[in-house]
Design a protein around this nucleic acid. Structure first.
Length: 513
RNA sequence: GGCGGCAUAGCCAAGUGGUAAGGCCGAGGUCUGCAAAACCUCUAUCCCCAGUCCGAUUCUGGGUGCCGCCUCCA
C-alpha cells in the first residue's frame, strides 16, 4: 500500500492507480532560458526516485516531462544575444540534460516541446472557445474565462472574490475578469509566431502543459507534480482548462504532488533563522553546474533526498559536506561488500558446517541476513509512506553499519568462511544494491578510500617513497623515539598526507581536502 | 487582505494517541606510546494557551513566529 500526499485534498491518500500495475506521471519541466539551479533540480530528483521506486515495486511507469521552449523569457534572452529563440532553448536544454545526468536523473519516456505540439495546442484552445470557456479579443489574444468555471480555485483553495481583493497585478482592462489568463498571445512585431485561427501568435503559459500531458498520458493520468510555486496559478489553470475542454471534472491528473523549496539564508538580516526561497528572479541561486564543480553528483543527490520532498531544504555547503561524509560511509560498505563477494565467488566461503568437528550451529552471518531483510522491508515501508526518502536512507545507512561490523569481524579472523555465509553475503549485497538503485546512487564510480584510491591516482614513485618514509618511522617507533616518529607524522600531515597507526598496521592517505 | 505550509536537542532531520529514529557536533569510554580511525555509551519537559481523551508532541480550536502563493518562478 502506497500513500501519497495529495495537494488537492490536503491529505495523505492511498494510491490507487488508474490502471492496475501501471503509473503515469507528468512532471512540469523547465523553461530553458538559463541554467537550472539547485532548486529547479529538486522536483526532478524527487520524481526520479519516485519512478524508480514504482518501477522496482513492479509497476510499469510512463513518465512525461515537458520543455516549455516557447516563452517570453526565452524570446527576451534571444533578443539580448541576437540569436533565435531556438538557439537559446536548445542550448539550455543541453545544459539541463548535462546537469540531470550528473545527478543520475533517468531520462523521461517523452520530452514534448511546445514548439512541436503547436497544432494540438491550437486545437485545444479552439475547443475551449467553441464550448464558451474562452473568448477572443480584436487583436488576436485569447483568454480563458474563469467565471465560466464554478470549480475554479479548487486546487489552491482560493475563491475568485478573495483573489480580487488582494490582486496587485496591473489589470488588463480588456479581460472580462482580472483573473482570466491568456491561452494565446498575439505576436508583437519582431516576435516569433505561429499561424492560428486568431492570427499570428504563440501559446500562453499554462495551456502547453495541459495539452502535452493529455496528449501523452491520456484524459486521465495518475500523477502531476512540480514545485509548490506551481500550485497557483499554473496547475490551477491547467486543471480549469483541461477539465473544461474535456467536459469532465474528474479527468486530468488524479494526484497532485508538490515539493517544497530550496531556501537560502536571508541576506542583510541579523536573524539567522530566517530563510528565503531560492529563485532566479531574486538572483540568490547556485546553479547545478556550479555545485557539481565542487561536489560529486551523487553527493548532491543524497543531500537533496535527506530531507522529505515536501519540506523546505536549506542550501548550504555545510549540509553538502555532511552529505559527502555520509555518502563516504555508504561507499565504504559498498567496497567491503565488494571484497566479500569477490571472496565468495573465488570459493573462499566453502567450509562445510556439517563437518562433525565443526561446532557452529548457527551461521555467523545469520544476524546480518536477518537485519538485511528487516531493513529492506523498512526501506520499502518508508518509501511507501509518501516517498519518505529521508527515512529510507537511514535504513540503508543502518545496513551499511551492519555490513561494516561483519566485515570488521571477518578481517579480524573472528568469522569462519562457511558456505551459508557466502549465500548470505550475496543476498545482502543484492539488498544493499536494491536500496542504492532506488535512491539512485552507486551508478557512478564509487569512491574508495585509502589504498586503492591513492595508488590509482598517484605514481608508483610516491608509494615507494612513502614505504621508505614509513619504514624509517617504524624504526623510530620501535626505538621508542616518539619525537622523531611524531615529527614525521606531523610534517606529512602538513604536506597533506595522513598517517594512521591502526591495530592492523600503519596506513596512509591523502587528506580529503 | 485572502489562501496554503511549517514549528521536534547546539545544528540537520524522521516519527507516533501511551513520555521521541538517524546523522553532525559535544562529553565519557575501549583501543593506542601519543594522535587518528574504528567501535561502545551519554545528551530533548517535541513553540505557547485552551479543549477532547484514561492518556497528546501526535487530534480540535485559538495564539505567536517563520516560509510560500495571490506577478515570472521548481
Amino acid at each position: 500500500m502506497i500513500k501519497v500526499y495529495n495537494t488537492m485534498s490536503r491529505k495523505k491518500e492511498i494510491f490507487k492507480p488508474l490502471k492496475k500495475g501501471e503509473v503515469s506521471i507528468y512532471c512540469c519541466g523547465v523553461t530553458p532560458y538559463n541554467s537550472p539551479h539547485i532548486g529547479n533540480a529538486r522536483p526532478f530528483v524527487t520524481w526520479d526516485v519516485i519512478r524508480r521506486f514504482f518501477a522496482k515495486s513492479g509497476y510499469k511507469v510512463r513518465y512525461v516531462q515537458n520543455f516549455t521552449d516557447v516563452d517570453d523569457k526565452i524570446i527576451k534572452a534571444a533578443n539580448k544575444h541576437s540569436v533565435t529563440w531556438k538557439d537559446i532553448s536548445e542550448k539550455y536544454i543541453a545544459v539541463y540534460f548535462k546537469s540531470m545526468d550528473a545527478l543520475n536523473v533517468r531520462r523521461a519516456d517523452v520530452y514534448p516541446k511546445v514548439s512541436e505540439t503547436m497544432a494540438d495546442i491550437i486545437a485545444m484552445i479552439q475547443t475551449l472557445i467553441d464550448k464558451g470557456f474562452a473568448y477572443v479579443l480584436d487583436n488576436g489574444d485569447v483568454f480563458y474565462s474563469v467565471e465560466t468555471d464554478k470549480n475554479y480555485g479548487k486546487l489552491s483553495g482560493r475563491k475568485l472574490e478573495d483573489m480580487l481583493a488582494g490582486a496587485r497585478v496591473e489589470v488588463d482592462k480588456r479581460k472580462k475578469n482580472p483573473m482570466d489568463f491568456a491561452l494565446w498571445k498575439a505576436a508583437k512585431p519582431g516576435e516569433p509566431f505561429w499561424e492560428s485561427p486568431w492570427g499570428q501568435g504563440r501559446p500562453g503559459w499554462h495551456i502547453e502543459c495541459s495539452v502535452m500531458s493529455l496528449k501523452y498520458l491520456g484524459e486521465k493520468f495518475d500523477f502531476h507534480g512540480g514545485g509548490s510555486d506551481l500550485i497557483f496559478p499554473h496547475h490551477e489553470n491547467e486543471i480549469a482548462q483541461s477539465q473544461a475542454a474535456l467536459g469532465d471534472e474528474n479527468s486530468f491528473a488524479q494526484y497532485w504532488l508538490h515539493n517544497g523549496f530550496i531556501t537560502v539564508k536571508k541576506p542583510d538580516k541579523s536573524n539567522e533563522e530566517e530563510q528565503v526561497k531560492m529563485s532566479k528572479s531574486a538572483g540568490n541561486f547556485s546553479t547545478v553546474e556550479e555545485i557539481l564543480a565542487k561536489y560529486p553528483g551523487e553527493v548532491v543527490r543524497l543531500f537533496l533526498l535527506q530531507t522529505h520532498y515536501r519540506n523546505p531544504l536549506e542550501f548550504s555547503e555545510e549540509r553538502i559536506i555532511e552529505a559527502q561524509e555520509f555518502f563516504g560511509k555508504l561507499a565504504k560498505a559498498y567496497w567491503q561488500l565488494d571484497e566479500l563477494t569477490r571472496k565468495v565467488h573465488a570459493g573462499e566461503f566453502i567450509k562445510d558446517t556439517s563437518d562433525k568437528n565443526f561446532a557452529i550451529t548457527v551461521s555467523p552471518a545469520g544476524g546480518l541476513a536477518e537485519e538485511g531483510e528487516r531493513l529492506l522491508s523498512n526501506f520499502y515501508a518508508a518509501m511507501s509512506d509518501d516517498f519518505n526518502t529521508a527515512l529510507a536512507i537511514t535504513h540503508m545507512f543502518e545496513l551499511s553499519k551492519e555490513i561494516s561490523n561483519y566485515y570488521g569481524e571477518f578481517t579480524e579472523g573472528k568469522i569462519l568462511p562457511v558456505k551459508i555465509d557466502g549465500d548470505i553475503i550475496l543476498r545482502v549485497q543484492a539488498i544493499y544494491m536494491e536500496m542504492a538503485e532506488i535512491i539512485g546512487i552507486f551508478e557512478q564510480p564509487v569512491p574508495r578510500d585509502k589504498d586503492e584510491e591513492k595508488s590509482a591516482a598517484e605514481p608508483e614513485l610516491v608509494n615507494a617513497l612513502m614505504k621508505i618514509i614509513l619504514s624509517l618511522r617504524q624504526d623510530a617507533r620501535a626505538a621508542k623515539n616518539w619525537s622523531t616518529a611524531d615529527k614525521i607524522r606531523d610534517e606529512l600531515k602538513a604536506a597533506g598526507i595522513v598517517v594512521e597507526d591502526t591495530p592492523q598496521g600503519v596506513t596512509w592517505k591523502f587528506n580529503a581536502q
